[in-house]
């Protein structure tokens, strides 16, 4: 018998001939949100700041200058060519001089100092940005290797809780849920921001 057949046979033996009916799953937890959209934006901001991320708000026409200003604050003097963009980033979000991900080997993305991407959905209650590998969000390594990550979130991408957020994504896409900068709690269970992923997370909230 192959290992596959044997493991499956063991499970069938363990569960027995007369299998109990599958217990019903009651989903009476919250799957919608009664808060206004303005309130959700405030909650998202509060949660992200709690994770030590920076949140900047701007109008749709101010995205590029806001991103540029954010990069300046985070990195000080830098060359625009050190900033790499998700390939699907809208033209009017792009800071001048920054470069699009050209598909180089993933590890070579470590040469950049900062990344700018969009998001697929943002979950207010947990301060979570979901990136889905689409051109707007870029491949996974893009939001991982450069030390500073700027994510542009549009107001209508913000939902209340985790169920609403997951309902909006494609389950088979390469998904990354990001809640603040990289962190660890491994030393005396105290949270310290900044380990292997980006040490700086800046969220530009467009509304």
């Amino acid at each position: 018998m192959s290992a596959r057949e044997e493991v499956l046979a063991r499970i069938r033996t363990a569960l027995g001939e007369d299998r109990a009916v599958v217990p019903e799953i009651v989903r009476d937890y919250r799957t919608t949100d009664e808060r206004t959209h303005a309130q959700l934006l405030d909650v998202l901001t509060d949660r992200l700041e709690d994770y030590k991320a920076t949140v900047l708000r701007c109008s749709p026409s101010e995205v590029a200058p806001t991103v540029r200003a954010a990069l300046g604050t985070a990195m000080g003097e830098h060359s625009p060519a050190d900033v790499v963009l998700a390939p699907g980033l809208p033209a009017d979000w792009r800071p001048d001089g920054s470069v699009e991900d050209d598909g180089r080997p993933a590890v070579a993305l470590a040469d950049y100092a900062a990344t700018v991407t969009g998001v697929s959905v943002a979950i207010a209650e947990t301060g979570t940005l979901v990136l889905d590998g689409s051109p707007l969000c870029g491949r996974r390594a893009l939001s991982l290797l450069p030390d500073c990550l700027v994510c542009v979130v549009e107001a209508d991408q913000v939902v209340g809780g985790v169920p609403e957020g997951l309902a909006r994504v494609d389950p088979t896409a390469p998904l990354t849920m990001i809640s603040g900068p990289s962190a660890t709690s491994d030393i005396e269970l105290q949270r310290v921001e900044g380990v292997h992923g980006p040490r700086t997370l800046i969220v530009v909230l467009v509304h």
């Binding site: 389950p171 390469p174 998904l175 849920m177 990289s182 962190a183």
Partner: peptide, 28 residues
């Protein structure tokens, strides 16, 4: 994804959750 982070590290959400399905050409 609501139960685990709050119970383990005591955070509303852990910094990173990766979800992947098989192989994605050009990514990973």
């Amino acid at each position: 994804l609501q139960l685990l982070p709050r119970s383990s590290t005591g955070e509303r959400m852990n910094p990173y959750t990766s979800l992947w399905t098989g192989v994605t050409p050009g990514d990973g």
